[in-house]
Amino acid sequence: MESSRKQRWRQLQSVFEPGFKQMLLISLLLHLLVPVLYYAPFFPQRDIRKPPVYRVNLVNKPVKNPQAGRPEAVAEKKKPEAKPAPKPEPKPLPPSPKPVAPKPEPVKPKPVPVKPKPEPQPEPKAVAKKPEVKPAPVPAPEPVKTGPTKAQESALEKRLREIREAQEKKAQETARKDRLAALKAAAVAESAKKSPIADAPVGMIGGKGDEEGVSAVAFVQEFIQQQWSFSKYQAAGNPQAEVKLFYSTDGELLHYKFLKKSGNEAFDDSLIRAITKSRQLPQALPEAMEFHIFFNLKDMLDRR
């Protein structure tokens, strides 16, 4: 056993060219040098800027008992931009080694004081993932090899490192403070916001059910409102009308009836147009539903 291995080794050695071992060693060392150089401060690390990732939950079907969550649910409103949360923000910790650029980095965005979302979010991040985007470091000039000597270079480097460390410490401090302020601001913003949780799953504010989706009632309300066009220059007095609509499960209007007309012909006609346009809902309903809709111009006339 022993002899066979030695034998093979000798065989191999006979195959190897002289100096192979040294070459192997050099090669190994050179390979080791790669990570060393990579992490050495001479070479600036350029982060790959990832595009912000929005995760959109497409489950926004109208349901009867929606769960608590975000109400941005109606089919027409699928814009991720509307979400308040994800905003590419600088990640101050840990600060990546900065380039040897002698300028004091004016471009680095400071953490915005009003971050819409606090960092430690205890909720399971079901919907929106915070995009991990680091600020693009200032494109640094590559160290120019022509000028200073090695000694000068190392001295310069040392000094720069000191400055950088001080800077980093300061940056960390301010970042910490900023984050604290941001947390406070976020807390205030959060309490004023409609949705209790920015990253909440699709649902309704104050939803008490357990179904993922939006309230069918809100969906129908928004859809019919979108179909209704009426000008404030048509308005006379404060017209009000009450209509009963009956929708099938497929979202088809089976019949409707005016329980009370406003008496203002232009107003009533505009409602008939809106209802006619709402003959087929873009999505199915959880079940056949009946709606009593009260139409008035409260919000429009107030703004006049």
């Binding site: 066009s229 009426f230 056949a288 009260f294 008035n296």
Partner: peptide
Amino acid sequence: TVFAARIEISSPGEQTIP
């Protein structure tokens, strides 16, 4: 079994007539 919901729509979605 028939679910009747009451809704108020207090302003039109479009405030001009196309």
